[in-house]
Design a protein around this nucleic acid. Structure first.
Lengths: 226, 226
DNA sequence: AGTACATTGTTGACGCTGTCAACTTTTCCT
DNA sequence: AGGAAAAGTTGACAGCGTCAACAATGTACT
C-alpha cells in the first residue's frame, strides 16, 4: 500500500541519489544519466520514470513530449558550455585569446563528449519551438563573437562587424567540423591521422588565414590610431 | 490461400513500382524511400516489409539488423557521392579545380540533403563492422586527396604527402562544418547570416590559408623546377 | 531418382516505446 | 470551507526490434 497508492502525503518529489527534489528537476538529472550511459537515441521518458520510481506518465506532466525534456537538457548543456568558454585563460593579445578560446572549445568537447555530441551532432528538437534552448546556444556563440571583436578592434566599424560575423562562422565551422569528424570514427575509415594530430592543422589554417587578412588590413581600411 | 501460403512458386521477389526485383535490392530502395520521406530515425524494417507486401520478418533474412540495411544504404550513398565529386568540372589550374570540387561537394549536399545528412550527421553504424561502407566512404574522400596532390605537385615528396593529408582534413572540416551548421537550422537561432552568404566566407578562408602557405613555399622546401 | 540440407518466408509471441483516456489525489486560490 | 487546477496513477492501444518454431523452396550429393 505504501507504493501502489501514494496516499502517504506524497510530496510531489522524487528521490535521486540521496536528495529529494522536485520531480521536474529530477527528470532532467535522470535524463542526463540515461543519455550519458546509453546515448541520446536511447532516451525514453519511461526509462526516466522507472529510475525515479514514479509512474510511466508522471514525466509527461512536466514535459509533454520527449523533445521538450530534451530541449531542457540541451539548454542546460549550452549554459555549461558557455560557462566553460567564458572561463578560458585570458590574454593581453586578442589573437592569443582566440587560441585559448579554441582550446577551451576543444577541451570541453574532449572532456564532455556526450554533451558535445548532444549539442552539435545529435538532431536538435526544432529550435523555433524551444526559444530558451536557442537563446542559451546563442549566448555560447557570442563568446566567439566577443573575442573576434577584440581581434578586430582596430578595424573601422563598417568592416569590423562584417569580419567578426564572417570569421565567427568560419572558425566555428572549422573547429566543429574537426570535432564532428573525430566523433564519427571516420578518421580510421578514411585513412586519416588520429584526431590528436589534427588539432594543430586546423588551428594553423585559421591562423594562416587571419594572418593573410591582416596583410590586407594595410590595403583596405585606414586604422583609427597607431 | 494465394496469400497466406506462398505455395504459388513464390519468386523470392517483391514488387516495387512496376518492377519485380529480388527482395534484397527492393529492401534498399524501400529503405531510401522511407528515409527520404521521414528521416533516418524513422527507418524501420517493419515499415520496409509493409511497403513491399511481405511479412515483418522477411527483410531480416537479408539484413540481420537494422544497421546492416542502413550500412548498405550508406554504401550506395557514398558511391553516388563519390561519383558526383568525380563529375566536377575540370580545370587546368589545380587551385581552380579545388574550387570546383568544393562546389561539387556543396552542390551535392544542397541537391541531396537527405543523403548528405545520412552520411555525415546521422550516426553511422559502426564502421568497423561494415567494411564495404567504410571503403565507399574512403573512395569519396580520395577525390579530395587527388586534387590536393595536384595542387602541391611542385612540392618535394617529404612535404607533399603531409600537406595533402593536412589540408584534406582542414578543408573537409571547414566545408562539412558549414554544411553541418546549415542543417542544424542553427544560423537563425545564433543570429548568423543565411547559409547562402556563408559559402564564400569559408572558401575565402581556405584560399587565404593556402595562399599564405604558398608564400612559405619559398622559405621551406627547394622547388624541383620553377 | 531420391534424400538431406541450407535458404527464404511466414506466423506468433515477448518486452520495449510513445500516446490517449479515465480516474484519484494533492495543492492552491477565493 | 469549497471548488478548480495541477500532479500522478492506472489501463489500454499500436508500432517497434527480437526470438523461436514452422512451412516451402531450391540445390547438392549419393
Amino acid at each position: 500500500m505504501s507504493k501502489t497508492t501514494r496516499s502517504e502525503a506524497a510530496p510531489l518529489t522524487a528521490d535521486i541519489g540521496s536528495e529529494t527534489i522536485p520531480l521536474k528537476q529530477a527528470c532532467v538529472i535522470a535524463a542526463r544519466e540515461v543519455i550519458a550511459a546509453e546515448g541520446c537515441a536511447a532516451l525514453s521518458l519511461r526509462d526516466v520514470a522507472r529510475r525515479l520510481g514514479v509512474s510511466h506518465q508522471a514525466p509527461y506532466r512536466h514535459y509533454p513530449t520527449r523533445d521538450d525534456l530534451l530541449a531542457e537538457v540541451l539548454r542546460q548543456c549550452f549554459a555549461e558550455f558557455a560557462q566553460a568558454l567564458a572561463a578560458r585563460t585570458p590574454h593581453e593579445n586578442a589573437q592569443d585569446e582566440l587560441g585559448s578560446l579554441g582550446d577551451a572549445y576543444l577541451g570541453y568537447a574532449a572532456a564532455h563528449p556526450v554533451e558535445y555530441a548532444l549539442m552539435f551532432t545529435d538532431p536538435w528538437p526544432q529550435a523555433a519551438h524551444h526559444p530558451a534552448m536557442a537563446q542559451a546556444a546563442k549566448i555560447a556563440f557570442d563568446e566567439l563573437r566577443s573575442v573576434l571583436t577584440r581581434v578586430y578592434a582596430q578595424v573601422p566599424a563598417p568592416w569590423q562587424m562584417a569580419w567578426v560575423e564572417r570569421d565567427a562562422l568560419c572558425i566555428w565551422a572549422a573547429i566543429h567540423g574537426l570535432a564532428s569528424i573525430s566523433r564519427l570514427d571516420a578518421t580510421a575509415a578514411l585513412g586519416l591521422a588520429p584526431v590528436s594530430q589534427l588539432r594543430a592543422h586546423v588551428f594553423g589554417m585559421i591562423e594562416r588565414s587571419m594572418a593573410n587578412e591582416s596583410v590586407l588590413n594595410n590595403n583596405i581600411p585606414k586604422q583609427t590610431d597607431t
